[in-house]
């Protein structure tokens, strides 16, 4: 299903990247990434010291999960640029949908590139992360 040279502006793809995010996955990510900030894993620290309602996912976890949607859409080895901005916290129990929409198709140095606008949304309909990406499509 990788993006093809026939891809046009307005084409889009979306994927549920996590359902009912578990605290276990947040801990799994902390270990795999080496980011041990207790705000993500320690309920007492997150609530009583940092003043948050509970722990929340690493922004980079949302980025990584959204990256899975992107590589599924554009195909392996075709992503040339990926940038994200964290808009809102992601909490345990959240279900996230990541969406990419083609905003431009252009030619650069003989390669055909597609620019994508990325939005990751929680199950309340709130945007948690926005981003842009570019992929080689031909």
């Amino acid at each position: 299903m990788p993006l093809a040279a026939t891809t046009k502006v307005g084409d889009s793809y979306e994927e549920t990247i996590v359902e009912n995010l578990s605290r276990t996955q947040i801990v799994q990510y902390a270990g795999a990434s080496g980011d041990y900030n207790p705000i993500h894993t320690d309920e007492v620290f997150a609530t009583q010291v940092a003043g948050y309602p509970t722990v929340f996912a690493h922004g980079m976890l949302t980025m990584g999960m959204t990256g899975k949607m992107l590589t599924n859409y554009v195909g392996d080895g075709r992503l040339t640029y990926y940038g994200v901005r964290f808009v809102r916290q992601v909490w345990p129990g959240d279900t996230l949908v990541a969406r990419a929409e083609v905003s431009a198709v252009r030619t650069e140095d003989g390669a055909t590139l597609a620019d994508l606008v990325i939005t990751t949304t929680n199950d309340k309909g709130e945007v948690v992360m926005t981003g842009d990406a570019t992929a080689r499509i031909g």
Partner: peptide
Amino acid sequence: AQAVGDLDPVYFDIDAASAAGHPTLVAPPT
């Protein structure tokens, strides 16, 4: 890859990586 839920075979299976034209297992871009 497991922590971000990305189970693409080119990260796990050498044959899948070869079939996709890679010399060995690929690492997720990020």
